[in-house]
Design a protein around this nucleic acid. Structure first.
Lengths: 209, 209
DNA sequence: AAAGTGACGAGAGAATGTTGCAGGAATCCC
DNA sequence: GGGATTCCTGCAACATTCTCTCGTCACTTT
């Protein structure tokens, strides 16, 4: 009873503080203070401040990658990919604070963070890129442009979670319920459809000329 | 001779380190070490670590706001607004590292940073929103949707400068010359045109029905 | 009763931001 | 030329804060 409670309290507190103040901006004292537990408990449960971060990372990424891998094994259809997009947005929204934190920390040249995420990120990129490519296989988009579009696609997956602090109030309205995930992933999907369609058209035109 | 050199060296070093490691992640000793100057020189020139940050902020934002104010006084035309968009992207790209830093730091709940930026941000929002609204005045887009689109617009202005560390290599290719600024602002402008056009069409359709 | 576990308090050891002081080297002013 | 000023260095000290470890206590389990 007691352990689950305190350990979870530490995790919650650190999650929130990392989100608002960043990893370097929060001390273990801050965390312990917010969780209302003793400072040494953090070392006890997670060994380090870094160990705590690592624990949170694994807990966050493990189900996420699982989700991706599940869809990587399904039959390749556009609908399946579109469904995955919505599920990704849903997952990120569900763990909104930590998602923000991860994306922000990824813009830093932090060896520690990157080292513990590199396998997850590689898997994510591999799976997403494969599905992305197969979805656009019908329209003959070439190599360099495909990569650029993929970059743009990944940008769309993270943009809502990199909003500045002073814009969040308005954004939180959208984040409040499941409405946002649906709407926003629809935006991405619409962009996708538009992409396929417009390229087909320009392809046809070139054929005529 | 000497003073300009060392002061500038400190500014360069701190700019780079804030960019890669964040404000809290860099110590004054790191900065002094990288600039190859004495630690006490930072206090000498800028009083504080915070003073150094403040100095950099002012130096970055002053010309930026000046640019915005210049265009706020011009006659209201779509072309003028489009031109401003490209100039903004150009400015941000020119000061790429510090732009990234500012955008990242804005996602934090950092009182110090926010306090010294609040006036700049207010001015920026005021001017941009006015121009944005006037540009979309022709098409009858309503209040709430207008604000949502404005949010999206501001998101587009900062997305390229929030790229994760491991995606930058590919991005730097685009950032290498003036090509990027032109291309990317064209992307925004096209989105804008599409916005006006599609809304006009749906408006007409409703009229017919 | 013994062993194990979760929690606490104190504190060591290191890092950080900041300040102070003695001096060197260049520049400016008379 | 000589003195004053300015810019910079080097070293040291300071208080503060940080992370992390240690010994101990209370409670539970065996």
């Amino acid at each position: 009873m007691r352990n689950a409670s305190t350990k979870q309290k530490v995790m919650d507190a650190s999650g929130y503080l990392f989100f608002t103040k960043g990893y370097h901006g929060t001390s273990v004292r801050d965390i312990a203070g917010r969780a209302k537990v003793n400072v040494s408990l953090i070392s006890y449960h997670f060994k380090n401040k870094q160990g705590l971060l690592e624990f949170l990372m694994v807990e966050y990424f493990e189900p996420y990658i699982e989700l991706l891998e599940e869809y990587a094994q399904k039959e390749d259809s556009k609908e399946s990919f579109y469904q995955l997009i919505e599920l990704i947005i849903q997952y990120k929204k569900k763990h909104y604070q930590f998602t923000c934190f991860v994306h922000r920390e990824l813009t830093l040249d932090n060896v520690l963070v990157r080292e513990m995420m590199v396998t997850y990120l590689a898997k994510e990129k591999y799976i997403l890129y494969r599905l992305f490519k197969q979805c656009l296989h019908g329209s003959g988009i070439k190599g360099t442009q495909l990569q650029y579009l993929f970059l743009q696609f990944k940008g769309m997956l993270m943009t809502p979670f990199m909003m500045p602090y002073d814009m969040r109030d308005q954004n939180v309205l959208d984040h409040s319920d499941n409405y946002f995930s649906e709407q926003y992933s629809q935006t991405i999907i619409r962009w996708f459809d538009h992409l396929i369609e417009s390229h087909k058209i320009s392809y046809k035109k070139e054929g005529i000329i």
